[in-house]
Design a protein around this nucleic acid. Structure first.
Length: 478
DNA sequence: CTGGGGAGGGGGCCC
DNA sequence: GGGGCCCCCTCCCCA
């Protein structure tokens, strides 16, 4: 971004929510910062009110954390122990585990207790999952929202030191339609890519289908714009559900490219690519191989897969009889014939034929040798350094600072910018992933000679500069 | 630890 | 704008 340009840049940190949740879980396990203790038949479970309010309608109401509640009137402010004898200890433990890990791990025999607990506490997605597995239809009693009407209202309950879920008072004036509550489950602090892609129930070691609150039709389904039914697309509701002011204009955004994923906030470039991306979250695999039954999220992947059955290998090596399924495999293979190893570790100078092997080499910290000689230069003009600047992102603070400066509108850590990215950014890899994601292409493949303010040219120059600087420093030392 | 194959996912181009 | 097709990058797995 050029100085003076005032555009907003959204830098996603897909791992943040996972990291956040795992740290909260660690705090819970050690009792750190726990401001709420749940008890069930004598067993105590320290936990965090904010987490419980986020995951449970019961606690939202108990703590006055419902949207629209007046700030500062929280009943829960004085509530440090919550006795939940109506929920079995095992079920409560499982629900707490779910709250902090987004994974429900239970025994089949305890399913019904967990279902009961989820209903009482207003954890709808868990209740749905349990009912689904138990093969029960969602009747009135099983409806967590209905059930939640039994849940305490801060208006009714008043300040208490012990909240009882046993025979809770009915709220006086509260009607919570399901559609109002369901999107809130979307804010469960596990929205990282992995968590969504792999969220599921672990029962007897088997992964079951993922559950997410999506009882209401998705945007596409509502508008009928989607030809193929995609029942899991309700993540888009997170954007325009729940009525956040920041989500105004979501429908317009849908018609634009690039589009932002409402789940992981990733920017998806290209018209019509968002539904394809959304399937990475939903796990939906509409394309099934007619030969072996394997399912794929994408038609083109199925097409490639079919080559295994047909024996078609459309990418033959011109130098040997080898044939390949993927063009990229052929490309990799050709480097064997040519002997090219264009991807060189800048520290130990080991050369690799494949970029991902270099990355693996560096990520595994197998390379601890300091640079002792100048790295091999690019073979010629137009041939940019193969992997850099990416290859430096973990071990090169100067480069990181350059990127940090870039993000802050500087070309690098110039005078008056006393920052080391590694100091300012505790997780440089996260930064790099963010930069290397939606915005990173321009960094990765700088357009030669274009845009003196372009991020790509800046980063590329940084690589060259750090190279020169290191050489200069080495000469000075000598 | 490294080389190689395969698969998942994103972007570009086109219809 | 949606979707097909292709290329590319990255990650995982296995030998």
């Amino acid at each position: 971004m050029s100085p003076g340009e005032d555009g907003l840049i959204g830098i996603p940190f897909p791992e943040h929510s996972n990291d956040l949740l795992s740290r909260l879980n660690a705090q819970r396990r050690t009792g750190l910062l726990c401001d709420l203790t749940l008890t069930s038949r004598g067993t105590r479970y320290p936990t965090h009110r904010s987490v419980m309010a986020a995951v449970s309608l019961y606690f939202r109401r108990l703590f006055g954390a419902e949207e629209g509640d007046e700030v500062g009137e929280s009943v829960g402010d004085g509530c440090s122990v919550c006795q939940l004898d109506c929920v079995s200890p095992d079920a409560l433990a499982a629900l707490l585990e779910f709250a902090y890990t987004a994974t429900l791990t239970i025994r089949s025999s305890g399913m019904r207790d967990v279902l009961k607990g989820a209903q009482l506490l207003g954890i709808q997605c868990v209740a749905d999952a349990c009912r689904d597995i138990l093969g029960e239809a969602g009747d009135d009693l099983a409806n967590p929202v209905k059930e939640a009407e039994h849940l305490p209202s801060r208006r009714k309950q008043g300040r208490c030191s012990v909240a009882r879920a046993v025979s809770p008072a009915r709220p006086v004036s509260f009607i919570a339609p399901a559609s109002e509550d369901t999107p809130e489950y979307g804010v469960l602090p596990t929205q990282g890519r992995e968590a969504h892609a792999h969220r599921g129930l672990l029962i007897n070691g088997a992964a079951h289908k993922s559950y997410r609150p999506e009882d209401t039709p998705s945007e596409e389904e509502e508008s009928g714009a989607q030809g193929r039914a995609t029942p899991h697309h309700s993540q888009s509701q997170q954007g325009d559900g729940a009525g956040g002011g920041a989500t105004v204009g979501v429908r317009k955004r849908k018609s634009q490219t690039p589009q932002q994923c409402p789940v992981c906030q990733k920017i998806i470039h290209g018209a019509g690519k968002l539904p394809r991306h959304m399937r990475t979250h939903t796990g939906e695999k509409p394309f099934q191989c007619s030969a072996c039954g394997v399912r794929f999220t994408r038609n083109d992947k199925l097409k490639i897969h079919m080559r295994k059955h047909t024996g078609e290998r459309p990418y033959p090596c011109p130098s040997c009889p080898a044939r390949f399924l993927h063009s990229y495999d052929l490309k990799n293979h050709l480097s064997l014939h040519s002997g090219d190893r264009p991807f060189e570790c800048p520290l130990c100078h080991k050369a690799f034929a494949r970029e991902d092997h270099l990355q693996r080499h560096r990520k595994g910290h197998s390379c601890l040798e300091l640079r002792t000689r100048r790295p091999r230069r690019s073979p010629g003009p137009g041939a940019s350094p193969p992997t850099e600047p990416f290859g430096l992102h973990q071990q090169h603070p100067d480069h990181m600072s350059a990127v940090a400066g870039l993000l802050e509108g500087h070309g690098g850590p110039g005078p008056g910018v006393p920052l080391l990215a590694s100091a300012r950014m505790p997780f440089p890899e996260l930064l790099w992933r963010a930069v290397a994601g939606p915005l990173g292409k321009s960094l990765e493949k700088p357009e030669g000679g274009s845009s003196p303010h372009g991020s790509g040219s800046v980063t590329h120059r940084t690589w060259e500069e750090e190279d020169e600087e290191q050489e200069d420093a080495g000469e000075e030392e000598e």
